[in-house]
């Protein structure tokens, strides 16, 4: 079983509402602040992108559902700051001490922003795990979807694609395995593939016989079919 964030294929969400392409990037000022605080805290070096995604996914289903997008970010960040010991519960309650923090020398400076964003955080890695599959080959995804290293842990195999048969479209090289990296168990890089699934393999009532969904899936999510 995965978590509430794993919503691909779910019914009942209603219409998608397009937006003016020239509208504001951050419709409310606090949206931009939430994004910027989150990115800046990343420079403290206490977590990676998989850990921060998992922090949002660990919000209770009630909170995940009622929070708007950037509320999830801020809640995940606050939880992560306490979990990593950067802040205490007293700090969050406004009752902690001011003054320099041991990590303050890592704070992102304005002059470092451009280069930090340009550098990004590539997940491509060398790996000693050889690719088992090649484009065109049929594969079947693991079932059930879920982290096999940590119960209830982070994974990037959506439930809707568990146990489905598809074909390899391309090899993306080797990438950090989120199931391991999100739990500080090492980067464990392995081959990553784009895998195409016929819509009829995933849905009871596909819209068109030619339609497909393509997912990026790690080798350990896949079996030969």
């Amino acid at each position: 079983m995965t978590r509430v964030h794993d919503m691909g294929g779910r019914y009942g969400d209603g219409a998608v509402v397009p937006e003016d392409e020239n509208g504001p990037v951050f419709p409310k000022d606090w949206h931009g602040r939430a994004l910027a605080v989150t990115l800046a805290c990343g420079s403290l070096g206490q977590w990676n992108i998989d850990i921060s995604r998992h922090a949002r996914e660990q919000l209770s289903p009630q909170d995940y559902t009622r929070f708007s997008y950037y509320e999830k970010w801020i809640a995940g960040l606050a939880d992560l700051l306490v979990e990593t010991g950067v802040l205490t519960q007293e700090d969050l309650a406004g009752e902690g001490p001011d003054g320099p923090h041991p990590l303050a020398d890592r704070a992102m400076k304005p002059e470092a922003v451009k280069q930090t964003l340009v550098n990004g955080g590539p997940a491509d890695r060398d790996s000693n795990i050889a690719p088992l599959f090649e484009p065109g080959q049929a594969v079947r995804t693991a079932r059930p979807a879920g982290n096999r290293l940590v119960d209830g842990g982070h994974t990037r195999l959506p439930a809707y694609a568990a146990g489905a048969t598809g074909r390899i479209v391309r090899l993306h090289g080797s990438h950090v395995l989120p199931d391991s990296s999100a739990h500080r168990l090492g980067e464990a890089p392995e081959p990553l593939y784009a895998v195409a699934f016929p819509a009829a393999e995933l849905w009871t009532d596909p819209e068109h016989p030619g339609d497909e969904v393509v997912l990026d899936l790690w080798q350990s999510y896949l079996h030969p079919a």
Binding site: F26, K28, D29, W30, G32, R33, A34, L35, A36, V37, L39, A40, C41, L44, S68, Y70, E71, I74, L77, A78, V86, L87, D91, L92, G94, G96, D98, G99, P100, H101, L103, A104, A107, M108, K109, P110, A112, V113, K114, L117
Partner: peptide, 29 residues
């Protein structure tokens, strides 16, 4: 939500963990 972000930004700024000018730069980017 707006107060929540402001509160967290204030706490982190007082401890020297973030620089509000860096946040302005990220948003401007």
């Amino acid at each position: 939500p707006a107060l929540r972000v402001k509160a967290l930004e204030t706490i982190l700024t007082r401890k020297g963990l973030i620089d509000p000018a860096a946040l302005d730069e990220i948003i401007d980017t």
